[in-house]
């Protein structure tokens, strides 16, 4: 029972406390580049999750075999293998999405989130926990991508998942789906998230104070 609870905590950690995008500010290149449409955000999030889960699992399984000194090159090989798999799979089954994500799929190899989890988590923890950590981090990344890309697609093209949502009188703000919009919208989103986290901490602190009194 407590084992299950523990795994749930590890999973939620990736979504809330250590959300790779909002709390750790890692993996910014794909976040900014592909968040112009929701379907791209989902595709990128799932592809990265796949790589994260399997690289975490394999690195955790090999953690007692890989010598400390060559761990970085070993991580690179493991991660690059799964990226190649995901790249080939996407080319075969979702060619249109693969085309629109373009160079950013092979670039999952250098996504700092995956390196950070391999180095700081999977190399030290047992396989099951590492797998769940990969799932949680992947989910956190995917959610952040969906959030950012929905805002950008809605304001920038007036659609969601390609379907018209905004009324016809709405003039899409093209700048939002251009590169400057990526920087600015992510900045604003981070602002909102930071404010929410601060408010939550304050709330928690005042509740703890009340209880102690």
């Amino acid at each position: 029972m407590s084992e299950k609870k523990n795994l749930r905590k590890i999973f939620m950690n990736g979504i809330l406390d250590e959300n790779p995008t909002f709390r750790m500010v890692l993996g910014m290149c794909p976040t900014l580049a592909i968040s112009t449409a929701v379907n791209q955000g989902i595709g990128m999030g799932l592809a990265t999750t796949f790589v994260l889960v399997f690289s975490n699992l394999v690195i955790s399984l090999l953690r007692n075999i890989i010598p400390e000194k060559v761990r970085i090159p070993s991580f690179v090989v493991v991660i690059a293998t799964f990226v190649t798999i995901v790249d080939q799979l996407m080319k075969a089954f979702v060619p249109a999405l693969s085309q629109s994500l373009g160079v950013y799929i092979p670039l999952i190899v250098v996504n700092c989130i995956i390196f950070a989890r391999a180095e700081s988590y999977a190399f030290k923890q047992p396989p099951m926990a590492s797998l769940v950590d990969g799932l949680g981090m992947g989910a956190g990344f995917t959610l952040a991508l969906i959030l950012l890309s929905s805002v950008r697609e809605l304001l920038g093209s007036g659609t969601l998942m390609g379907a018209q949502v905004m009324p016809a009188s709405y003039h899409p703000m093209a700048i939002i789906i251009r590169p400057p919009g990526g920087f600015i919208m992510l900045g604003l989103l981070l602002l909102v998230v930071n404010a929410a986290v601060k408010a939550m901490q304050k709330h928690k602190a005042s509740r703890a104070k009340e209880e102690s009194v």
Binding site: V25, P180, G182, F183, I184, L186, G187, L188, L190, N194
Partner: peptide
């Protein structure tokens, strides 16, 4: 980060 990102934008 928020300020830096908006500056970059």
């Amino acid at each position: 980060f928020p300020g830096a990102l908006i500056g970059a934008g």
